[in-house]
Design a protein around this nucleic acid. Structure first.
Lengths: 148, 148
DNA sequence: ATTAACTGATACTCATTTGGTATCAATTAA
DNA sequence: TTAATTGATACCAAATGAGTATCAGTTAAT
């Protein structure tokens, strides 16, 4: 059972890269090269982040993407929700039979509780926090095109 | 993002049914009917539980399946592991490059912590506990073939 | 001994999801 | 004018998920 799929995984890393490079545009190509992720795949995912206003873009030479929101406000849960949908136990709620089965209900109750715990734990993790951890561990800068 | 797939979901419910019926054999057919799950699908899943010694079986007329282990010792995490694989953040550990990327490592560290929390929360949920909750809520018996 | 109700084992099918690629038009700095 | 870039789609292959089908062996009851 994988918690993060490629989209979410790459999105987190792309956003970390943009966060480390705040204030200037960075091209999809350079992010892809730097982070070792497939260019076209990354592009599609950036479009999604763009549509949701986490980043802004500029076309043409010297264009690229730039982080729009405060890194500390971007939670990993938000990214999971964007690329993998809301965390849910199983699909039972989407059916007409809402817990017609009692055993399932008990299970649901128990797991909803766990969902809460998971959710609140993930809520604590933001791009800003990750970047902070990273810089504390690695020195001042995430590997960018510039200095380093 | 779905936490439980059909296999795990059905397995939990099947085990709950067997736990409520401990000591006597119960056929796959009656479990399937009672719990409203596809017969063949259930059969395959029961074979898996059999192979792992959570249940025992007897062929022929009056045959069926019976819970082998103590319901309180059967954790939901164990079932998730059987049918969905061990909970993991992403696949990075399966690659030669074990965290060649530092940003990813920070993320991993953070998420491993969460994994721990999730794991320990799920550990608390056992078939025995669920059955207890169920009976407390519903009256003495899970709907079985017999009384009720 | 025969039969009907079972499990054991395996092999399909089909739809969806996942991860990744390709193409082409529009934009922009140099 | 050109090269570097995004915007928007459309496509592809492999894996996964959910469910079905079949047939051989076993067993209790008659």
């Amino acid at each position: 059972m994988k918690v993060l799929n490629k989209n979410t995984d790459y999105a987190i890393r792309a956003l970390l890269t943009l966060a480390a490079n705040r204030g200037s545009y960075m091209s999809a190509k350079s992010i892809a090269t730097q982070q070792g992720m497939p260019y076209q795949f990354l592009r599609r995912l950036l479009q999604e982040l763009l549509k949701r206003n986490l980043i802004v873009s500029k076309g043409g030479v010297q264009g690229g993407f730039m982080l729009e929101r405060d890194p500390h406000g971007i939670r990993v849960t938000e990214l999971i929700e964007i690329f993998q949908g809301k965390v849910q136990v199983s699909e039972c709620m989407f059916r007409k039979q809402i817990c017609g089965n009692r055993a399932h209900c008990v299970l649901r109750h128990e797991i909803m509780r766990i969902e809460q715990v998971v959710q609140s734990e993930f809520e604590k993790v933001t791009i800003g926090k990750l970047l902070g951890d990273l810089q504390a561990a690695n020195g001042p800068k995430l590997t960018t095109t510039g200095n380093q």
